[in-house]
Design a binder for these strands. Structure first.
Lengths: 229, 229
DNA sequence: CCAAAAGTGTTTCTATTACACCCATGT
DNA sequence: ACATGGGTGTAATAGAAACACTTTTGG
């Protein structure tokens, strides 16, 4: 087979960078690390790494997330390819950005300190290397869109959560307040939550009922017209 | 500067593929070419090419579109990175897919024959090489989403168009009929069209008034909550 | 008994849908 | 005169938004 056209092409470095979102109870946060190698060593950065030649790009993203956080089977979605020639000061590196949603409570604190990782509220993101700030911005916009039509908000909460918690989550993502009554009515009308008998008693005297997301029920619906907000 | 971490990484081929949409009066079409080199030479394919080392990925997409169609200053948007190791039978090539919207009438027929290019209605796309069918599918879904909130449908029409034409366009994109009265009311209520005195007389005895998209007016609106459909 | 958060309905308004007839013109 | 596609309004329904009081319970 004549593949000479391929042979004469220039190869380049391909990286992935991950915007890792967590929910801090009131606001959305992103997990950042102090970069461990040159250039820009010691500066705040997204988690990233290079794509190996015999590795799917999606797999590379999952691997990097696992290496740096210890977490696997995490919700991840490809965001965008950042491909400007000058984006990385050390040479031509095209980066595929992914965003991940994790339950901040399950995240192992030990790993945080290992890699000098820290959670930053989205409105207090420090200066980041390269085009990482743009990546975070784009991820935030994408999350806002996506969460309106897809049940991915639950990835950010524990399996059991209360309606006030869920509302705070949406308020955090949209950075705007929601009406409690309208919110509960709407979310319950979707018929995808199961109410538990148990109550969460930490955050109020009265206690709030726990709910769980019922994936089975959701799976049986038409996902086309479903609107969470 | 110590960039040894970069040096030890594997480089790979990066390509772009373009899904080029046009509107055929009744249905959406995609422009495909007969692939001109091995492997899979002579099979139907999206327009594609390799990204050069000193070229932005976006620029590569624009270059390839220009080389193969002669068109420039075309609406283009990055779609998705397709990065499976086995996607190209001749070796590891990661491809960034873009979709483009062009006014089919302005497209130079000569160039079509030069590259053995042809327009195919979306429901009659032939077998395509590699993962190009998936790319087309994803582009179609993205177009449907996007066109509901952004004024990109106009890219597919001549500068002057009639309301029946615009309606047919949306019907083509969504593959479902719309109510004429509801459609005109909605679209006119956005206040982004300028009605001309002139009429289009080809397709009916009575003739239909031409409109143009008023980019100035549109620019002055809040684009956040705007809904075309 | 009081502070703090949970839970719960109704009304108004806005947007969407469904639906049918007359108009202008070229042949 | 008639066939063809263009243009227009209203009523019914559904969804979104606004809004305030009662409940529970730990201290």
């Amino acid at each position: 087979m004549d593949i000479s056209k391929y042979k004469s092409q220039e190869r380049l470095l391909l990286a992935v960078d991950c915007i890792i979102f967590g929910f801090g109870g009131k606001q959305m946060k992103a997990l950042l690390i102090k970069r461990g190698f040159q250039p820009e060593k010691g500066k705040w950065s997204l988690m990233g790494g290079f794509v190996n030649k015999n590795e799917n790009v999606d797999a590379a993203a999952a691997r990097i997330l696992r290496q740096l956080t210890g977490l696997k089977d995490i919700y991840m979605e490809q965001l965008h390819c950042f491909g400007d020639t000058k984006r990385d000061s050390a040479g031509r590196v095209v980066s595929i950005a992914y965003f991940a949603l994790i339950n901040i409570a399950e995240y192992n604190e030990q790993l945080t300190s290992d890699h000098e990782a820290r959670w930053f509220p989205l409105d207090k993101i420090p200066t980041l290397i390269f085009d990482h700030k743009q990546m975070v911005q784009k991820a935030k916009e994408r999350l806002q869109q996506k969460v309106a039509n897809h049940p991915i908000g639950f990835e950010l909460l524990p399996v059991k959560f209360t309606l006030p918690q869920l509302q705070s989550l949406y308020e955090g993502i949209y950075e705007s307040p929601l009406d409690k009554r309208n919110f509960t009515r709407k979310i319950l009308s979707l018929n995808i939550l199961k109410k538990l008998a148990e109550k969460e008693k930490e955050s109020s005297r009265k206690g709030a009922f726990y709910y769980v997301f019922d994936r089975d029920k959701y799976g049986k619906l038409n996902h086309d017209g479903i609107k969470f907000l």
